[in-house]
Write a protein that binds this DNA or RNA. Structure first.
Lengths: 344, 344
DNA sequence: CTGAAAGCGCTTACAG
DNA sequence: CTGAAAGCGCTTACAG
């Protein structure tokens, strides 16, 4: 009856109805000083009654604040849709955003650097206040790019570099210790580390840590670089098993759930028993691990919690925070059916 | 050297450097008439050289256009991270957006109606130009809400209602025909349809279609409502197998990959052989289907392509298009190791 | 505590 | 074809 033609309700409407200035409405709405408690209450009440929500464009334009963070994932669809990693991570981010009333702008690009253009464009267009970064590469071009653009960013990574961007650092050393201690106590002495692609910084860290921690325990740790794909896990496993029954590894630590599942499948197909003839640990737990037979022993890294931590750090930096490093806590080893004493 | 203090490059900068008006720059940039070819070329060249990207806030505020679509997923994290459905769907959407230079605002909420608030808020805030809708319920409250808000929307569904919102309609009848023909030709006469929750409109359609198409082929089709979860598939399967060897179904059509995998696992655990003693089809193909043993026979619905179609329809409606219904094409049955002739 | 006014960076009729 | 100007809906010093 009142606002027939005009679709949108603005602070001008509220100001007019209350007989005060737009400025007062703005101050009241944003919880800033400059209005009396009584005026503030009247504004908030009317805004609620009218279902008022400030135009994000107007806020962004005048206050240079979008309330939006960006996530750009540059990975092959075939791999990414197979792993649960990103979906869990996104859920963690969203849990935080639901509470903090933030928004997520998401972009899935190919692996050939198209992502750099998205960071640049979104920044110039003023679409986001900051970025959450995953899958760090060595000399990752995103770090200098975002630094140059002056855009807050948090890398979820295993490397605690001091390059100015925010970093949520995974304690890979502790993760490796948990897995190696488990295998060591079962009696394994020779282990194969089937990693993901070494272009990823965290895979390099894991490889080095597996080697050093293995040596510290008197373990032989061999390494093979995989692709995260099923075929890659199958191939590495059959190659390993062809060396039997010499001094081949009795256990495989696989870089993701897919390759771990492949290892179990392949061993079983070749007539071996898991875990008696071969033990397998998956670096990341997932439904796949719970559904495969036998169920896979795997690390639960609390991915949703990690994502929340990362998002919290990012909002902190956006708000002007200066503490750029934060550490996530070590995960839990879920012992299921694919690890046991080796026969030998 | 020139723009030291001022971070952002604006059309005013371009206009100044070229000695023309802001309006001309705007026309040139947006490919609209009102500038000579020569001027347009100079503008575009300089904009490119300066790495100019228009402020999305300013465009949104003045032109009421964000270039952003919203997707709000109201599902339990445990289920959603297990299925590949949404990740594939998001990839399809993103493929389209990468080409059309559109953006995606994503929100994952709980299942208790919090999503309605997000639709309302994003609309009032002017954050998006339209919504992509999934998981239609009977009398879905989102339809009247978005209609009232005057917001373009496309529901990806199995129901071709004429309620004004856009609909990309899955041909469930054809899908059912493909699966039933396969089972029928193998010799199955009694089939169990283990559906997902019937609160979803597409599950109701599937149930009705399974019944009618089954009857048309002289098949007995029983129905059990599942939850999409592993436990649900396991339970339904063991209940079915307890009825053996009477006139129990010899095949299960399961509503998603998780329940299908559960059916195979459970049957195997109970000492039955798949597919000899029990055949299983998964309604949606996934890595899980390819990794499980035996590999699962499943429908490939071309989810990424469907998502692209839906996004295309949405942008069409946003641009003023009036054709609200579009049909997606039927998927392909991938015959693997879980379907074969029944023993009987 | 309150109001008038400038400004954010675009788009879009409207005159020339 | 081109320019001057108003307007989108907020925020934010700046006076009172």
């Amino acid at each position: 009856m009142s606002t027939a033609r005009r679709e949108r309700i603005t602070i001008s409407d509220i100001a007019a109805q209350l007989g005060i200035s737009k400025a007062s409405v703005s101050y009241a709405l944003n919880g800033r000083p400059g209005v009396s408690a009584a005026t503030r209450a009247r504004v908030l009440h009317l805004a609620d009654e009218l279902g008022f929500h400030a135009s994000s464009a107007a806020v962004a334009l005048s206050a240079s604040r979008t309330g939006t963070i960006g996530v750009v994932i540059a990975r092959d669809p075939a791999v990414i849709t197979a792993e649960a990693f990103y979906m869990r991570t996104l859920f963690g981010v969203e849990q935080y955003l639901n509470e903090a009333d933030g928004q997520l702008l998401l972009r899935l690009t190919g692996e050939r650097g198209e992502d750099l253009d998205v960071y640049r464009r979104w920044t110039r267009q003023g679409r986001v206040d900051g970025f959450l970064l995953y899958d760090e590469h060595d000399d990752d071009p995103r770090v200098p790019l975002l630094t140059a653009l002056g855009m807050p960013a948090v890398m979820v990574t295993s490397v605690a570099l001091d390059d100015g961007i925010g970093r949520l650092v995974t304690p890979e050393a502790q993760t490796v210790q948990v897995m190696l201690d488990h295998l060591h106590s079962l009696g394994h002495r020779e282990i194969l580390h089937l990693s993901g692609p070494l272009v990823y910084a965290h895979e390099r860290v894991r490889m080095q840590t597996m080697a050093s921690e293995g040596a510290a325990r008197g373990l032989q740790v061999a390494h093979v670089e995989g692709t995260y794909e099923f075929a890659s896990g199958a191939e590495a496993t059959s190659a390993l098993l062809r060396r039997r029954p010499s001094t081949a590894p009795t256990a495989i630590v696989a870089g993701n759930d897919i390759m771990a599942t492949a290892a179990v499948s392949t061993a079983t197909d070749l007539g071996l028993r898991v875990p008696t003839d071969l033990s397998v640990i998956a670096w990341d737990d997932s439904v796949l691990c719970q559904v495969a037979r036998p169920h896979l022993t795997a690390m639960d890294h609390g991915l949703m919690g990690k994502a929340r931590l990362a998002t919290d750090l990012l909002f902190d930096l956006i708000a002007g925070g200066t503490q750029v490093h934060r550490a996530s806590s070590v995960g839990t080893l879920i012992v299921r059916g694919t690890t046991g004493p080796p026969r030998r």
